[in-house]
Nucleic acid binder design. Structure first.
Lengths: 158, 158
DNA sequence: CGGTATTAACGAAATATTTCGTAGCAAAAG
DNA sequence: CTTTTGCTACGAAATATTTCGTTAATACCG
């Protein structure tokens, strides 16, 4: 299992590309906080990001700056430094990153079962009827008819 | 440092109890790996946990031991040290911890929208028809709404 | 122009996480 | 009884994350 693990670590740290995916490190919690601001406000200066963060908690300007610089180094954000005040934007779309994070959580805590995750997300939470309806729509859109992956188990009873 | 943030940090670190929740620190990724073993195998010795972890990756015995000791200090696991080889078990049930983690992710990456999370979990993933049906059942249980989407299972609640 | 304000770049401290080596002790084997 | 094995405790290094102070450059204002 050594080699496998080495590869896993390497991929995790962005040294190898799984060929199908881009080489983006997993955002930390602080970095996610910033990404949420960028997703919501679009391309932003350090000042703007910091102002947003400051609404929620106490954080110094240079802290936010440093974080954005690190995120830039890691490739989590891109930046336009043509003018003196740089403008940062997410390297990945919101959905892509969220998908990554769910995959991570799925592996880390749910043994890979998306079903269990969704059950947990919906079960212990008050969800509005409207939201439930939207999820029903989603289920129908996934298409109960054409679902191709439906049968991994070839042992459909004969 | 604003007062709100101090409180936030304190709660996050388990110094204050939000009164409604227990005072359990958030498991790290490595700790989750171990929790999964405990959930799956029940109360376990360090040896057993380490053997399980070793199936997936290369990890030293004392590493696992140390991790379990730290988790014990943090209150993430309890242990029976009446005999020489201690036996560890999770302090919280699988579901409780998973719920916590979802809450965390919800806040950190989905702006609190369970809907978006579920959409993401189901959307970009191959989910079997069987699983989709199970989720439909779950939805119907949460909200005995109209649009009974093929609920043949006459399940009920107390 | 001279002073104030704003910004990026570093360096570094503080903290958290992961990993393992060593030592001491108890149990099992011989 | 002596050796070997297995276990816990402890210390500490290696790494990752978060935070901020200081400095230097640039823009702005009067």
């Amino acid at each position: 299992m050594c080699f496998v693990h080495i590869c896993y670590e390497a991929i995790r740290n962005g040294l190898l590309t799984p060929m199908t995916k881009k080489n983006i490190p997993r955002p930390t919690e602080s970095e996610l906080e910033i990404l949420q601001v960028l997703w919501q406000h679009g391309p932003s200066t350090v000042r703007l990001v910091n102002d947003e963060l400051s609404k929620r908690r106490d954080v110094g300007y240079t802290t936010t700056l440093k974080l954005l610089q690190l995120m830039h180094e890691k490739g989590i954000v891109t930046r336009d430094d043509s003018s003196r005040t740089h403008v940062y934007r997410p390297a990945l779309r919101e959905q892509e990153t969220q998908g990554q994070l769910i995959d991570r959580l799925l592996e880390a805590a749910f043994g890979g079962s998306a079903l269990k995750l969704v059950q947990q997300a919906l079960g212990n939470r008050r969800t509005t009827r409207e939201e439930l309806d939207q999820i029903r729509d989603l289920l129908d859109n996934i298409d109960p008819h054409a679902t191709p992956s439906a049968t991994d188990t070839p042992d459909e009873l004969a």
